[in-house]
Nucleic acid binder design. Sequence first.
DNA 1: CGAATGCTTCGCCGCCTGACGAAGCGTGCG
DNA 2: CGCACGCTTCGTCAGGCGGCGAAGCATTCG
Lengths: 228, 228
Amino acid sequence: MDDAAPLNRYQLAELGSLLAEPARAAMLLALVDGTARPAGELAHAAGITPATASAHLRRLLDGGLLAAYAQGRHRYYRLADERVAAMLESLSLARATAPRAWPTKADAQLRRARCCYRHLAGALGVAFCATLLRRDWLQTGSRGLFLRPDGAAALTASGLELTDVPSLYGRSCLDWTERRMHLGGPLGVMLTTAMLRAGWLRPLPHGRALQPGAGGLRQLGILGVPLD
Amino acid sequence: MDDAAPLNRYQLAELGSLLAEPARAAMLLALVDGTARPAGELAHAAGITPATASAHLRRLLDGGLLAAYAQGRHRYYRLADERVAAMLESLSLARATAPRAWPTKADAQLRRARCCYRHLAGALGVAFCATLLRRDWLQTGSRGLFLRPDGAAALTASGLELTDVPSLYGRSCLDWTERRMHLGGPLGVMLTTAMLRAGWLRPLPHGRALQPGAGGLRQLGILGVPLD
DNA sequence: CGAATGCTTCGCCGCCTGACGAAGCGTGCG
DNA sequence: CGCACGCTTCGTCAGGCGGCGAAGCATTCG
């Protein structure tokens, strides 16, 4: 099912040119959290008129980075694929040199826990994923990683309400703050959703950061997730 | 030691515009294997005149993607950083849709084993890394992953001549063919070099593919690396 | 020393593309 | 039904950037 030939120069250049415009970059970054937003809102986020935004969105759509659906007189855009989000995240790895300002508090929150296309990323995401692997609760299947029954049982006992465990697969997703893997894919999304529902995590009003609650941290600790 | 704030729209766009030109993309792709090449050779690889290539190389240099050093009347360019190679690899993850031709034989070799910035990537690299983790031969240290003494002993017993084990650290590197991690960083480079010296792998004359030898596969099997 | 070589800098041309306003089109509301 | 609204398409303009040849500079070799 997988096509994985190396990118040639033209494909790489085409991909680069899609990212090469601040307006398009802004719109993509506004969508990394996995939400779908109407064209007008994206135009505002990018600081351009609707006409210009429409052209940019069309290019991103044609380039396969976005998907769109119409609802009433609105047209909602979202990232085409979870892998697009992973790609955008991994680009942060490239800045080898660029000396920059000291990390802010928002950065620290973002590093701790955030959502990356609806699944958990950041230090907490990486630690959680590592624990699942260490306890051998994940198993490699045909389409990715699957949660073993004993793992599901342990998580359920901790208070998470899991759904569709046998059918959901997870994918490795590279974490740019930790430079290690965390769990993405439908399985990652489901687990993160369960944590949010159980109150382990609370979304912060602005941005992608997630705030772990005391109860959640306690349960995670019991599961064996190292917390700082 | 790490600065990991999210990319803003301008940084992302700047990075994208560096990749956005087929000529620059070709030069970068010619350097993913970690080699350093003189400007003229890169100009030839990109199919442009030295004058044009010089301008492109300068932009890539200023953008922090390349490093250069002069030797005689030649000027050698290489990727600035291992992370740049990892970033280029991970970009292959993005092409969600793009229907393409059936994988060729060269692709199959490339998927099997190749060098990514001087360390082992591909199915074999992923399997090897997974085995090191499963056997608990890697340990997380301050700067990355370190090889434990028992792991080093086992590898030495298999016929690898390891060097500087205590000081070399490894980094996770996302594999675009496998969508899983393999071992990069100085530790990954050292292990791969040792495998090449021991004849476990043989570099193929053109491109980045590596050909595993019978002896190497036998030793890897003994170590517990699942082969296919 | 002078010619050849490898690379960079300079100057110029042509194309691409991003920006906007105006107009067109479909949907929803009063 | 007609107007308001959200979005797209069209036409136009200006700026940016890639391309090359010629010239400049350093290094190597005879």
